[in-house]
Design a protein around this nucleic acid. Structure first.
Lengths: 93, 93
DNA sequence: GTAAACTAGTTTACATTATAAACCAAATTG
DNA sequence: CAATTTGGTTTATAATGTAAACTAGTTTAC
């Protein structure tokens, strides 16, 4: 019984990481779109992922508006894979 | 983005349901053994699963000691399958 | 040129949830 | 008969999740 990584075993964060694992980079707007989360929730959860060094958050300006770009780090990728492996074991899939 | 069933998307409850899906019946002791959870936590979580009609909890006596037996209901089984399907979609697996 | 509405987020207050410690009742053991 | 064990439940606290409220600036319309 290896405990599932609690940072990843949460729907919104899992959605974010899973999506980033496929595309390697996505902005705030895109993440809102694919996850259907509220701005507040998304903001909080990407911060947690960043604190854990699972993603990088790059802030810049696109025209005059702020723009936030997220990408998975190698650490995030690795721990996501471990999570997947352990989840599959738990669920026998 | 179909939201993952929050009752099932919790490690201990998921472990319980996943295990019961394989065996169809297990007692408290067995569930403690396979999940490695504390008694208190296990007690709380099986109660929640029972309230949701995902499992049945049958109390009896085995010799002189109380004995609690759990089994998945058809509803639990069905929602577990739906959860699995949606989880796989989310994770592309 | 200024009020209203929009973009792009962050902060924070509240509600929900999870968890283990404390508890309980009965049985066993020494 | 006191201490320990079995088989749990209750509950207090901590941790977490979430959306509403807020910030800061931009664009549009009058």
């Amino acid at each position: 019984m290896s405990k599932l990584n609690p940072l990843l075993h949460q729907e919104l964060r899992l959605s974010i990481v899973s999506f980033l694992a496929g595309v390697e980079t996505a902005d705030f707007k895109k993440l809102m779109e694919v996850t259907q989360a509220t701005k507040g929730n998304l903001s909080v959860q990407i911060s947690k992922l960043q604190k854990a060094e699972y993603i990088t958050i790059a802030k810049s300006f696109k025209g005059s508006y702020p723009h936030t770009n997220c990408a998975l780090t190698p650490k995030g990728e690795k721990d996501f894979e471990i999570y997947l492996k352990e989840l599959k074991e738990l669920l026998n899939i």
